[in-house]
């Protein structure tokens, strides 16, 4: 391959034209833009419709949800479901569930960022015996369905007396438990020019300094996209909290959400959907703030010498 993008030539976020604008007339450009927006808007409408329907349903009375009514509209729109949803469950306020979810999600973000970046540095930048073997093992952990390790893992935490604490839910994040993120960061670091750390090494820098002062700053976009993914996944996690938490005051949202629906009693689908909608807000906000970094995060756009 002869065409390479040296750091100075690296296309920036805004300069990656698929079409060469100069070769086209203004009219053609406008037409293309119109077609683009038409196509994108139609797609957006299709993709977002189920979400809209969900939001609309959160304003419908319970008896109109599910079953026969598939239309977006209802003549009985009201805020009742939100009132119920905000009312709390069994003496625990809904705000408490939000707070718990937030603690868990932020804890997951911090833990994943710290541990995955350090581990990825070892895999991507340090040559040590057994590296390939460990890398293969890490990939292998992605292959085992998690249901069969639930019980042995539970027993470990139970013997350590850590059930009903957040430790079992967070410790895995601080120990680079999710191979997906380590792999993602390994890939990212491999994309960074080796010359950078070779130069630093000649200057006498150790691994700690190379990692801290060269890699981490360059990895900022990758760290941000990892944050977003891990925030969202932790926010939506149901099984871990179900197994490890006993005290309702410690429950995060996904556990609370389920208590509006009970197969053996009456179910309040309206309140459940309302709470789902509310639960969506923080992740949506988190995503909207950081979304532009996702695209940079997995690439090397941040690299400018």
């Amino acid at each position: 391959m002869t065409t390479t993008a040296s750091p100075t030539h690296a296309p920036t976020d805004t300069a990656a034209p698929v079409y060469n604008p100069k070769s086209e007339s203004v009219g053609v450009k406008r037409a293309k833009s119109a077609i683009f927006h038409a196509a994108a808007l139609i797609l957006t409408a299709i993709v977002l419709y189920p979400g809209l329907w969900m939001i609309a349903s959160s304003f419908k009375p319970n008896s109109e949800i599910g079953g026969q009514n598939t239309s977006l509209w209802s003549n009985n729109f009201s805020f009742d479901n939100f009132v119920t949803a905000m009312d709390g469950i069994g003496g625990v306020s809904t705000l408490q569930f939000f707070t718990n979810s937030l603690i868990l999600a932020l804890g997951a973000v911090v833990g994943t960022i710290l541990s995955a970046s350090v581990s990825a540095y070892a895999f991507a930048r340090i040559n040590f015996p057994g590296r390939s073997l460990f890398f293969g093992m890490m990939i292998a952990t992605l292959l085992l369905p998690f249901h069969v390790v639930i019980i042995p893992q539970y027993i470990i935490f139970q013997q350590l007396g850590l059930v009903d604490t957040y430790v079992p839910l967070l410790i895995g994040k601080f120990l680079a438990g999710d191979a997906f993120f380590v792999f993602l960061m390994v890939q990212f670091m491999r994309g960074l020019p080796a010359e950078l750390d070779e130069a630093a090494r000649i200057d006498g820098a150790g691994h700690a300094r190379i990692f801290g002062s060269i890699m981490l700053p360059l990895m900022k976009p990758a760290l941000i996209s990892t944050s977003i993914f891990s925030f969202i996944w932790s926010w939506n996690d149901f099984l871990g909290p179900l197994l490890y938490l006993n005290t309702p005051e410690k429950y995060p949202l996904p556990l609370a959400l389920r208590l509006f629906v009970d197969q053996t009693q009456s179910s309040d689908y309206g309140a459940m959907i309302a709470m789902s909608v509310l639960a969506l807000l923080p992740v949506l906000i988190f995503f909207l703030i950081f979304q532009r970094y996702i695209v940079e995060g997995v690439s090397t756009q941040g690299l400018k010498g």
């Binding site: 952990t141 601080f174 390994v186």
Partner: peptide, 30 residues
């Protein structure tokens, strides 16, 4: 994951395992 061209001469076991420590701990313990 080994790059074909070695970035450093020789291996650096101590640094490698130090950086890999979180993952190794989690892997072995959990």
């Amino acid at each position: 994951p080994l790059p074909r061209k070695k970035r450093q001469r020789g291996t650096d076991a101590r640094a490698g395992y130090t950086f890999l420590l979180p993952w190794l701990l989690g892997f072995i313990a959990l």
